[in-house]
């Protein structure tokens, strides 16, 4: 068993890393909103689900790929991938902003605690998942393969697959852009100000509603990118995909320390790898259990997550 594991270590690690980056991007949708609102963005999972369908529609219906089409190459390939990525991000970003308007805004203004918005977000999730379920006849939908999954070469005996490589490289680029946005731009600084101290930020003249919308937009964009990468990697989607990946990504956010971007990064990577390794040893059916046991152990020893900054001590 161990021998097998060592043989496959690098190929498992690559798969785990690309899954990890998908988790990171979805986790950002949770963690950024949590940072600003201290609320669980429950509908983020369905934003992801919708984004996967946006990608499939671009590949299948806009560029007319079928299961038997020849692979695209060269410029056409990058055009297709680029279009699908941008379209998924835009769809998800806009959807995310709309969800904030419908499910959160009014309740937020009424200061109604955390449960009422949670239930209304659950309602939105149900609407989205059910709408897609009805449209897809409750069946999973396969995405035609536009890109040949060629091997780029070997790394310690492990095949380096093109799709995994694209996911890892593109996700890193997105994360760098995100960090630059949050740290360098005015809007990014406003987001950080609100997440540190909303009332002070308001007194300083920051438009809270605007910041919240931007946060949902950015979280949605990242989650949308994850939708594209997911389809690239697994080549299918279904109405229930949001739920599965959403829980995992939310776990990743908490594992790393919810509310900060660094936490989503490490939590997503840790989860992607752990899940892949655990599936190898215990079989895929136990991976969710493994993940949750690890989560509980981590939270028990480090209540703010692996990389979470310690919250200020409880005050009386």
């Amino acid at each position: 068993m161990i021998g097998n594991f060592l043989d496959q270590f690098w190929s498992l690690t690559f798969g785990g890393l690309s899954l990890g980056f998908i988790y990171i991007l979805i986790a950002l949708g949770y963690t950024m909103v949590y940072g600003v609102l201290r609320m669980i963005n429950f509908a983020n999972s369905e934003v992801f689900m919708v984004a996967t369908f946006a990608t499939i529609i671009i590949i299948r219906d806009v560029f007319n790929f079928t299961q038997t089409s020849e692979y695209a190459t060269g410029f056409r390939l990058w055009l297709i991938l680029g279009t699908a990525l941008v379209a998924s991000m835009v769809v998800a970003g806009v959807l995310s902003v709309l969800i904030e308007l419908v499910a959160y805004r009014r309740l937020r203004r009424m200061n109604s605690g955390i449960l009422a918005p949670l239930i209304s977000a659950i309602g939105v999730s149900m609407v989205l998942a059910e709408a897609v379920r009805i449209m897809t006849d409750s069946r999973p939908v396969a995405s035609p393969r536009a890109m040949e999954k060629s091997f780029l070469g070997k790394f310690f005996d492990a095949d380096v697959r093109l799709d995994n490589t694209i996911i890892i490289v593109a996700a890193i680029i997105l994360l760098v852009i995100l960090l630059a946005f949050v740290n360098k731009t005015r809007l990014g600084k406003a987001i950080r100000a609100v997440s540190m101290n909303p009332s002070a930020a308001k007194l300083m003249g920051i438009n809270i509603d605007g910041v919240v919308s931007i946060t949902f937009l950015v979280g949605g964009l990242m989650t949308g990118a994850a939708g594209f990468f997911y389809v690239l990697k697994y080549e299918n989607s279904s109405f229930s995909i949001g739920f599965e990946l959403g829980i995992a990504a939310f776990t990743a956010a908490i594992l790393g320390g919810i509310g900060n971007i660094k936490g989503a990064f490490y939590g997503g990577l840790a989860l992607g790898l752990l899940e892949t390794y655990a599936s190898f040893f215990l079989g895929t059916q136990w991976k969710a259990v493994t993940v949750f046991v690890i989560l509980v152990l981590v939270l028990y020893t480090r209540p703010n997550g692996l990389f979470g900054e310690a919250m200020t001590q409880s005050r009386a």
Partner: peptide, 27 residues
């Protein structure tokens, strides 16, 4: 163990527990 943690985390731990019970039954 769960009730010693911050309130926000209780949600995810209970959610996980619910899934674990189902997965155990499934396997």
């Amino acid at each position: 163990p769960a009730l010693k943690l911050r309130g926000d985390y209780l949600a995810i731990i209970t959610l996980g527990f619910g899934e674990i019970v189902r997965i155990v039954a499934l396997n």
